[in-house]
C-alpha cells in the first residue's frame, strides 16, 4: 500500500518542514519505505514551495508523481497549480485562512482548516504547518500521532527545545480537526 502527497504553499509557510517531519518521523518510527522530494530552484520566502512525500510498505517507484492521493494546500496559487494532480477520490487539505477559492471538482473530499488564524491565536504564526500536519495525520491516519510527536522532539527539539511544547500543542489541535472531519 502506497500513499502519496504533495504539499504546496508560499515559501516561509513551513511547507518543507511539513514534508520532512512526516517523512523523517515515519523513517525513524516505522519500517515503511519513505521518499521526500523538495522542489528546488530560485525559491525564497514569499515565493512558492512544494514537496512530494510517498509512504509505502513496499519499494517506492516514482518520488515525483503525476497523480497523488492527498494534496495539502496553503495558498491559492498552489491550489490552481496542483489540483489537477489530485486523484479521483483523493483528499484535499486546505488552509482556509488563506485559500479563498474552491476547486471545481465533485470527485474529491475537502478537509478545511483555518490554520493560519489558529496559529496566530496560539501566538506564533509559524506553527501553521504543524497544525496542518495534525489535520493531515488525524484525517489520513497514515501513521500514528506518536511518530510525529517524536519527530518534533527530534527535529525541532534538537535546536530549540523551548519550542517543543508549542509545536506539540499545535499538532494536537490539528489532530482534533482531522479526526472530526473523518466522521
Amino acid at each position: 500500500m502506497e500513499r502519496d502527497l504533495i504539499a504546496a504553499g508560499f515559501g516561509g509557510q513551513g511547507v518543507m518542514m511539513f514534508g520532512t517531519l512526516l517523512a523523517q518521523g515515519t523513517t525513524d518510527a516505522t519500517d515503511k519505505q519513505v521518499t521526500y522530494f523538495p522542489s528546488y530552484g530560485a525559491e525564497m520566502r514569499g515565493g512558492t514551495a512544494n514537496c512530494y512525500v510517498a509512504i509505502s510498505d513496499d519499494a517506492i517507484g516514482a518520488p515525483v508523481m503525476d497523480q497523488v492521493d492527498d494534496l495539502v494546500i496553503f495558498n491559492d496559487a498552489s491550489l490552481e497549480k496542483f489540483i489537477g494532480k489530485l486523484k479521483k477520490g483523493g483528499t484535499l487539505f486546505l488552509n482556509t485562512s488563506i485559500v479563498k477559492t474552491r476547486p471545481d471538482r465533485d470527485d474529491i473530499t475537502i478537509v478545511e482548516a483555518p490554520v493560519t488564524e489558529m496559529a496566530l491565536e496560539m501566538g506564533n504564526a509559524k506553527v501553521l504547518n504543524i497544525i496542518m500536519l495534525g489535520v493531515y495525520v488525524g484525517y489520513s491516519q497514515v501513521i500514528d500521532k506518536e511518530v510525529i510527536l517524536k519527530a518534533i522532539e527530534h527535529k525541532i527539539g534538537a535546536k530549540r527545545p523551548q519550542l517543543v511544547p508549542l509545536n506539540n500543542e499545535a499538532f494536537e489541535k490539528g489532530l482534533e480537526i482531522g479526526k472530526a472531519a473523518r466522521k
Binding site: 517523512a23 519505505q33 519513505v34 521518499t35 521526500y36 522530494f37 523538495p38 528546488y40 518520488p63
Partner: peptide, 10 residues
C-alpha cells in the same frame, strides 16, 4: 541525477 541528489530516503 538531480532527483537522487535532492531527495531524501532512509
Amino acid at each position: 541525477d538531480g532527483v537522487l541528489g535532492t531527495m531524501m530516503e532512509p
